[in-house]
Amino acid sequence: MNRRTFLKCAATGGAAAAASFSAEARASRSVPQDPYGCLVDLTRCVGCRKCEQACATVNNLPAPSTPFDDPLVFDVRRRPTPEAFTVVNRYHTGRVDERNRLVPTYIKVQCMHCQDPGCVSACIVGALTKKDNGAVHYDESKCIGCRYCMVACPFQIPKYEYSDPLTPRVRKCTFCFERISRDGGTPGCAAACPVEAITFGKRTVLLELAKKRIRENPADYIPYIYGETEVGGTSWLYISAEPFEKLGFLKLPSRPIPQTAESIQHGIFKYFWAPLTLYGLLGAVMFRVHKKGKTDGTGSEHKGENQ
């Protein structure tokens, strides 16, 4: 083995060892035991979009093209954008009231602030972190714009500022991190809701509240809390009168995304299978090319020409 080959092997081995150590370190981290969260009662939401307006105010976001009091916005299904961290959509599932009129269901969409977030696991520079208070916090000073978080998010929430060529950021709901970090602070959307469709508090308390409402009013709710177990649990929880699959909610496994991704990564790098396989393939290619050259006589021709 010459010096150049030795250095290549050493560098590859070091990278594999670092990746293995990184995977083990991430896999061993703990999630917050009882973070803050929000319970959204979809039977109470009236689609006033006060939560959208409060979010824009708290986060200094630009005014939307469609005013907050314009109901025509519900004609188009929307997703959060770099300029709108939360949006409300309207769904008709066929449910009618006592007068046989269609009853809409309004759905608030934002970052779910997972207990064990896939975006945090995917971020290679630590720009995204899960805080003890429940927020998945973004530090734009660390972000390098790789956008792995966008791929890793099972809810497809983070958005990138493609319109900003100089200082683009990844944008999403902040869970009003600064507000809830202070004693008594409440997310802007929860504080602004006029019908108390959004309840802010400790996650364990919210789960008990949700179960109590379902237990005491079985005709008004389906017996399920969305976010209790999805991808390991989320800080945003939902209860509804309609099946969640009819309201645009994704059906997701209970296993956290990082556990699956990191176990695969750890298995690949633990015994250096990745570099060994790579160099094995390269060696096979080099052997095949060298053998083909001898068979074609190209090696002897080149030798004759050189002489």
Rank of each mutant, 00 (worst) to 15 (best):
Q33E: 09
A219G: 06
R49C: 05
A135L: 06
G248E: 13
N59M: 03
K291Y: 09
T12N: 08
E52K: 14
P104G: 01
Y160R: 03
R49H: 04
P243F: 10
E140D: 04
S28A: 14
K246E: 13
Y106K: 02
P104N: 02
R3D: 12
A56D: 15
A17I: 09
A56N: 10
V103C: 07
F85V: 05
R78C: 10
A274L: 15
C51Y: 08
S141E: 12
G184Q: 03
N89I: 03
L61A: 05
K292A: 14
Y91W: 08
P158S: 02
Q307V: 13
R49L: 09
S263H: 11
C123P: 05
H266V: 01
D70V: 08
G232D: 01
L206A: 01
F272R: 13
N2D: 12
K130S: 07
T86Y: 01
P218V: 11
S121I: 00
G283A: 15
N2T: 11
F249S: 00
Y279H: 12
E52M: 11
M112Q: 14
S235Q: 07
F244I: 03
C51W: 14
T260C: 04
E161R: 03
T186L: 05
M150T: 11
C51R: 11
G233Y: 06
A241F: 01
T43M: 04
L237Y: 08
I239C: 10
C173I: 11
A241V: 03
V195I: 05
T86E: 15
C9E: 12
F6D: 01
Q53C: 14
G248V: 15
C143M: 06
V73W: 12
L250P: 00
I107H: 01
P187G: 08
G94V: 12
G13V: 07
V103S: 03
P223T: 02
G304L: 14
D132T: 10
R255H: 00
D41N: 12
L252C: 06
V40I: 15
R182I: 11
V109N: 06
A261T: 15
I268T: 05
M112V: 02
C149I: 05
D34W: 04
P104M: 02
L247D: 05
A127K: 01
A19Y: 03
C119F: 07
